[in-house]
Simulated scan of single mutants.
Amino acid sequence: MNLRTELPTAENSSNFNAVADAVTKAGTTLENLKAAVAGETGASAKYAAFAKAAKEQGFDQLARLWEATSAAEQIHINLEASLVEAEDPSYTRPTAEAPAPEAIDLNLIASANGEIFETSDMYPTFIKKAQEEGHAKAVKVFTRAKLAEAVHAEKYLEAYNNIDAADDDAYYLCPGCGYIHKGEDFEKCPICGVPKAKFQRF
């Protein structure tokens, strides 16, 4: 993801439309925040399971990618759940069972498909509703998650195409929005502006 002269928002970006066959049904923004937390919780558990399987099979770099994305989803969970808890103090964060991993290539495709759904269907739908309701904090949180998910999908597809030709590059996770960068060639997060020094290395 390239750096822009200004940080991306739902208002200054051209990639925030929901796909024509979107399946996400918008509730209130509070309901959508809860749905997003549930979805991200499932994704984090799934990626943790896939990371464990990859490590056991000797795919160390893939294991690190899944560990990074599992941690990224935890960032999204914390951002979204904090908004829920501000409106609904009785809210209890959900848990999720991890699915059984399949073959390593199929796990990568499943991961990419999940991220593509979030960036092209779920989050655009939730962002539009939050805009309609004037919920600026939710718009910002959903926007940053949506943009990070697109990058996650890209990383999964890159890993899929290079599954038998992996390199030793590290993955770096932005603590502000869950963006993931592969390799050393960056200075700050292109989504939220956090400097490289604060990123977590995987």
Rank of each mutant, 00 (worst) to 15 (best):
Glu31Gln: 15
Asn32Ala: 07
Lys34Glu: 02
Lys34Gln: 14
Lys34Met: 11
Ala35Ile: 09
Ala35Asp: 12
Val37His: 00
Ala38Arg: 12
Gly39Asp: 05
Glu40Cys: 10
Thr41His: 09
Ser44Tyr: 04
Ala45Gly: 04
Ala45Pro: 00
Ala45Met: 08
Lys46Trp: 01
Lys46Arg: 14
Tyr47His: 14
Ala48Ile: 08
Ala48Phe: 10
Ala49Tyr: 02
Phe50Tyr: 15
Lys52Pro: 04
Lys52Cys: 02
Ala53Ser: 13
Ala53Phe: 06
Ala54Gly: 08
Ala54Val: 01
Ala54Phe: 11
Lys55Ile: 09
Glu56Leu: 11
Gln57Ser: 13
Gly58Tyr: 00
Gly58Ala: 06
Gln61Cys: 02
Gln61Asn: 10
Gln61Met: 03
Gln61Glu: 04
Leu62Asn: 06
Ala63Glu: 03
Ala63Tyr: 08
Ala63Lys: 10
Arg64Lys: 15
Leu65Cys: 04
Trp66Glu: 03
Trp66Lys: 08
Glu67Thr: 14
Ser70Leu: 00
Ser70Lys: 05
Gln74Arg: 13
Gln74Pro: 04
Ile77Leu: 03
Ile77Met: 10
Ile77Val: 15
Asn78Gly: 04
Asn78Asp: 12
Asn78Met: 08
Asn78Cys: 01
Asn78Ile: 10
Leu79Tyr: 05
Leu79Arg: 09
Leu79Trp: 03
Leu79Glu: 11
Ala81Ser: 12
Ser82Cys: 07
Val84Asn: 00
Val84His: 01
Val84Met: 05
Val84Trp: 01
Val84Arg: 00
Glu85Leu: 14
Ala86Asp: 12
Ala86Thr: 13
Glu87Ser: 14
Glu87Cys: 07
Glu87Asn: 10
Asp88Ala: 12
Pro89Ser: 06
Ser90Gln: 07
Ser90Glu: 08
Tyr91Gly: 07
Thr92Leu: 07
Arg93Tyr: 04
Arg93Ala: 11
Pro94Ser: 07
Pro94Asp: 04
Pro94His: 07
Thr95Ala: 09
Thr95Asn: 07
Ala96Tyr: 05
Ala96Arg: 03
Ala98Cys: 06
